[in-house]
Write a protein that binds this DNA or RNA. Sequence first.
RNA 1: GGGCGGUUAGCUCAGUUGGUUAGAGCGCUACACUCACAUUGUAGAGGUCACAGGUUCGAAUCCUGUACCGCCUACCA
Length: 961
Amino acid sequence: MDMPPQYNPKETEDRWYKYWMDKGYFRADSKSGKEPFCMVIPPPNITGSLHMGHALNNTLQDILTRWKRMSGFSALWLPGTDHAGIATQNVIERELKKEGLTRQQVGREDFIKRVWKWRDSTGGTIINQLKKLGCSCDWSRTRFTMDEGLSKAVQQVFITLYNEGLIYRDTYIINWCPRCQTALSDLEAEHQEVAGHLYYVKYELIGNDIRVKVATHDAQLARQSCWAGRTTHDCITVATTRPETIFGDVAIAVNPKDKRYKNFIGKKVRVPELCGGREIPVIADDYVDIKFGTGCLKITPAHDPADFEIGRRHKLEAINVISADGKMNGEAGKYAGLDRFECRKALVEDLKNQGRLEKTEDYKYTMGSCYRCHTYVEPYLSKQWFVRMKELAKPAIKAVKDGKVRFVPKSWGKTYYLWMDNIRDWCISRQIWWGHRIPVWYCKNEKCPPVVSTSRPAKCPECGGAEFSQDEDVLDTWFSSALWPFSTLGWPDKTDDLRFFYPTTVLSTAFDIIFFWVARMIIMGMHFMKDVPFRTVYIHALVRDPEGQKMSKSRGNVVDPLGIMDVYGTDALRFTMSSLAVKGRDIYLSEERIQGYRNFMNKIWNASRFILMNLANSSIAQLSNSSIVKELSSNSTHDPLGRRTTHDELTVADRWIMSRLNQVTKEVTGHLEKYDFDKASLALYDFFWHEFCDWYLEIAKLQLSVTSGQWPADSKLQTADNEKTAHYSLLTTQHCLFRTLEQSLRLMHPFVPFITEEIWQTLKTVDSGQWSVDSESNNSMHESIMVSKWPEYNKKETDAKATAQMELVKAIVFAVRNIRSELNIHPGAKIKAIFSYTAKKPLKAIDILNSNAAYIKWLAGIEEMSVGEDLTKPRPAAVAVVKGIEIYIPLEGLIDIQKETDRIKKEIEKAGNDLKGLKARLRNKEFLKKAPEEVVTKEKDRKIETEARLGKLKENLKMLA
RNA sequence: GGGCGGUUAGCUCAGUUGGUUAGAGCGCUACACUCACAUUGUAGAGGUCACAGGUUCGAAUCCUGUACCGCCUACCA
């Protein structure tokens, strides 16, 4: 055993990860006969690298997987990546640009080759980072959305949906990214508020019989800004945020109920000459808001979704004025070629100069931007493929309503319904090259209907022609992600994995992709598998920086998990993640927090170090030879050190820690079952540090140090044979240290796999060949903590009596330590203490005090301790009262009377306040009548105790004076 | 516009079905490096639980309203 005083994660992590991989522990078996537990990883992008969101999500998934694996499940955590069509294409295009090339120049085929090459060399980065994080994924089953099998699944799904009439192609207004040059789905356009303007532009009325009397805007201003020869009565004003689309105006719409414009409906107006001077009709449509702007809405069907709808209703032409790259096209006359926003600037200036701009107002509105490159999207009219969602969504909604899919936390179900109930058709075609190409073929004869097929059709069923061209577009990456839970398990083939692991058990993800991904998976699962893709959706919070900002590269507030792991170790990061994984919406990550958990790792390390020192072979060998050990070992079964321990032989502290260990086992398991990772972590942290280390380990030092004759006479351990007593003490303590550590390690392993394995393996070296954590142990279990058994709660181990005794011991020790500290008694100084009680009320506490005197002396630094009835209080002395026991610490002149007086006064004040509240409550008849009896009893007891305490404190205060 | 969530110690957060003494970590103060750990130990200070009403014997917890903050969602130009 050679353990440095500080844990060094760097030395251990890679070593154990490799060991686990070599042993094949991550591999899941569909034929093991065990119950399945399955999770599919939310596939990260091949372009991505590990960020905190990944670190959180994958830590939680790994905790679940390792826990379930230890609990005897055939646990499959299926990893993989997605091809991230747009993002990846962007990366490769950037690379091409460095060579001075465009993708058009290299051509589709070569471009795709380059992407594959890139993905083979760098696309696996994130996978390696997940390994660094300790993820126990079954890497032999790693999938990629562009794999042959998954591509087959995508084609099959497309063709099936097409044949079912659930996929169609239509010309529609969609979100277009002018930079990525592709259509986007509604979800892929992120909305954000921008500070823009509302431009009031005047359109000339045609026909002298029309006169406008509009009182809604400033007549003076209107007149001033009128252009040559026109008056305000000759024009109609519209308010627009996008004047550059005037080139595509095909109508002015007013609300039929708007009296101001009643006479204009059916008449014509002329768009500004600058914008073509076309004559367009004034139409009536309910959509128009009378109160907004001037009440006149210009209609540009090719560049606004609402206008598009209105255009359809009124059978209006759609004039496209902006081209795919976001620049004005030929329709824009002299502005052609200008960027849409440049055009706006120039046009507004020109309109103003011509007196056509009535006014400009500041105005805030939302604009969509591309979720990949943040370029403002352009509502763009084009021919695209869509999935009809309404019908498909129905079974998916029902599945959640029926509880077949459960959201954790539950409230996310609402979010899900909200979107699903208002679901719109999904634009799935993308005008890029990297992705699953749409399996649709067009006959050279344009009149023939398209042929949907996985491969090039031999001949056209319509005209017999043999010349085909495939649809140029590829499918939305999320289309393939939607199939992930079954495509990764082998679908459409009927594989063993699919049969055994589908539906998967749980999906863990962040709320920001509930629509993008979770909902669509449920939809596809219900449609193609006729069953849900997962039974539970665990939605974790989003990791933010300490100021609550979403971490993003552009904000520059990204905390890199790899850097954190390098500095603090993977386990520290993982434990931080699980501790922070509350079921809220956000978690704030600060480095101090991580440091705190790094310290916890060090605590685990040093506790283990201490225990291992005391279990070291040398001492065991020595003991093994003793006749007492032989006697004790005779019917050993469960003891890891080959020694028998019966309940009677354990000390109070021993029984207490075993009881607590057992309790914690129950708690942690319960929390995990509820996905309360934070509570599970906290329970482990508190138990290990603040019970095991702070108390038991300190007591163990005493119990281990007992040699012949030293164990106090008031201990149960005391036997006639001093040597035997010492052995008992040593052996039982070792036993409890070992068991508590060993079981704690197993409980902590899913959270902090590396350090627990490292210690576990070292722990094995002190074993003399009888390692057995339980009777059902098998050989492979000895190899690694990873494949050991998850501890089980055992009711028999619960010892309420020992727990109560320890509580009193702790309370007394706290009281004495408080006195020591407040009166500046040096921590090293040994003191005398007198514990006095009143005989009239025989107190159980006294028994406990007597039998645990050794602990109290040891923990509170007491040299001489006397316990008795009505003992005289020495003067001067410090005083504390605990559970009716008065504690006197004689101070023999070195005491600061003033300090002790202050201290007692403080105590009196506290007790007095408590008592006031208690008395008031107990005076209340309603309380006595209506509160449950146990609450009343508790309050009464407290009152009696507080009263007594207060009395004693007051008495002592008097004696000081 | 609709929806969801939040407001508890200086900071970040817990707080289960209402039970009276509201917890933790970090930070802060004091003391201590003696044999697991200074990435430590011991002790301590610090909160009218956002506000206003209500229900109740009893409210951080349940109800109503208000204020502020955050997020999601949406075709008022």
